[in-house]
Design a protein around this nucleic acid. Structure first.
Lengths: 209, 209, 209, 209
DNA sequence: AATGAATGAGTTTTCATTCAT
DNA sequence: TATGAATGAAAACTCATTCAT
């Protein structure tokens, strides 16, 4: 499951992976601070002592979840960035990566969105997140330079709008306030891109017809 | 007796508010799970036992912050909804309320943005947030009916895009990854409305499928 | 209610009595250690601060309950002791005093039996209880001297048997394991006296016929 | 490793018993409500956290003392019931078991006598005591049917008299108001049986109404 | 007399982490 | 590797008691 968001699973691996996957499910269900180490172990079907054989602490488990999954997402986003397609297509690619990840591993996304993105302390984590933001921002900035997007808005702010829209949709799915069927996911993907890219289109009267 | 000349008793619920406001500051500074009940009491300048005179538990304090303090903001959103202005103006009004809240009470916004997402069970009991969403959705839906906005996207999804963009900007301010000066706030307000409303404008050619 | 076990109530008295009576009910229902001062106040319909106007502490409330009721019982037992009737009649009188008290104020008896009689620390309380025991013992000892009871058993031990039987019946009523209707009380009274006095009768063969 | 030569591991439930036995000593010495969990742990020579490894709460420790430790004694009573001896012998057996328990384990008896009566809600869940009562009642009832005991008194009431007498003697020992030497215990045993069985003997003339 | 807000010492309970086996 | 008994720091919460009003 883990590392599955963008790559293929390496197949049946060791207990470490078992624990990591159990942790994702438990964190998603009860929250990082609310759950106990024993909950993770129980979910994984191992003794809780074993967790400390593979990880230094409960915190490190969360950190590993993040490192071993978000890195993939960032890499995927980077690949999309380097495509020579129009910005709209590339943003659609980013949206697809983030939203389709949900369909593959909703719990993992839940944990990343809920626990890691807003973790108050760790700046190194945030730096990694910033890379995804930066990629989005660069896509937008280049589109502005190319005339594909209007240049009178801050590319950085625009990237926040785009990313925020995606994250809110994810949250909606997590909380069940938004349908998450196959159709819904596709519609969400389309709508977010359409609204944001539409709003970023230059010179609106000329754009028509 | 002596104090009456300079300080007037603000009524019975004096200390309760004092504790609630102290809690906002402490939660913003240390995080809900990281701080101790004693921290809140110390910040409020009262004995920790008094907290339990007004609240059943530490959790209830957080719940009250959402229900009582944040409620003002949601109420303001509702008032904007009832205005007879164009949807764009009304959404601008909503954006102004939410984003200006950052300058008015950054700690409160920090707590809401950071902690509300993390408490899975709390969210169900708190429909205050849902109501803000619903108001936004209604504004958009009516604009679609009036022809002000394009009708080929889900109003619900669009409300997620709008609210998500706003929340992400707030998150950027909370995490310090986005400038939050007077100018920045005004720009953010303008940009979010411009992008989203621009994307919802009806005069696009058949770009949408 | 209080002081009512043997004497007549003095009529409508003050708040102190109100609190004392409430305490009896609460102690009976929840136990002394388990209940809070607030429970007593609530039951009495007064603010809990008032309790400290009349009593020095929660412990003192219990002590007053004991002093102001057990003293009456002991006095009543003493009066019976001084009667010139046969020991059997006098023991029947003691049984009647103790068991009938139950009918008048079951909660009070519950508290005395449960909380005071087995209070681990206070010897002064126990001394008062000893007086009741001593009275019973003296009745038995004199009956042994008079030949009404067999003299080959310790009067002290016999008094424990008699008192224990009565207390167990009270406990049965308190716990609901023994019927406590009008008939049941009468039967219990008769049975205890019959068994114990029967067992204390001298020279069993001669006693028959 | 090293310890194996002199001390053998007594099995997994080693510490559990250790804690239970320590609790009996501490409860006997300080009382259930007066002692702290730390006292029990200290007495047992373990960290206080370990108590919660074996028991859910302090209350559960008390409950287990009744259910597990006292159960042996009740089981012994049952065995006596099944003997084919005369009722008097069997009641003597019951008396011996209960009263000799004082010399064998005075602290356990203290706890049972002192605390069981004080916990109203505990009593309902613990039928161990009720079973002892039932056994006594059955012995008496059968003796009445067989003509060994008079049939004109309620067997249930008679069982209360017998059990109450025994418990009161134990209480006397616990509170130190009754001598508890080897001789005293033997005398008490004899006296209780003699009085109660004497009182239940059928060859009384029509003393009973 | 009466109130109930305020105090804070004292307790139970939790749970991440260690470590002998 | 794997277990789970054992530890103990840390925290939430309780509640008798005080006291200004």
């Amino acid at each position: 499951m883990l590392r599955t968001l963008t790559e293929r699973s390496t197949g049946g691996e060791d207990k470490r992976r078992l624990i990591l996957e159990a942790a994702v499910r438990v964190f998603a269900r009860k929250g990082f601070h609310t759950c106990r180490v024993g909950d993770i172990a129980e979910e994984a079907g191992v003794a809780h002592g074993l967790l400390y054989h593979y990880f230094r602490s409960k915190d490190e488990v969360l950190e590993c979840i993040f490192k071993e999954t978000w890195a993939d997402i960032v890499a995927a986003v980077r690949m999309v960035e380097e495509t020579e397609e129009p910005a709209r297509e590339r943003l659609a690619g980013v949206a697809k990566i983030l939203l389709r990840a949900w369909r593959r591993d909703p719990e993992l996304v839940t944990v990343v969105v809920r626990e890691i993105v807003r973790s108050p302390d760790l700046q190194n984590r945030i730096n990694v997140i910033q890379e995804a933001f930066a990629a989005i921002e660069r896509i937008i900035a280049r589109a502005q330079a190319d005339g594909e997007f209007r240049a009178d808005v801050s590319a950085k702010l625009a990237s926040f709008v785009f990313y925020g829209a995606l994250e809110e949709v994810l949250t909606g799915w997590v909380l069940g306030t938004l349908g998450d069927g196959e159709q819904d996911v596709a519609a969400a993907e389309r709508t977010v891109v359409e609204i944001v890219c539409g709003g970023l289109a230059p010179d609106r009267s000329a754009a028509a017809v």
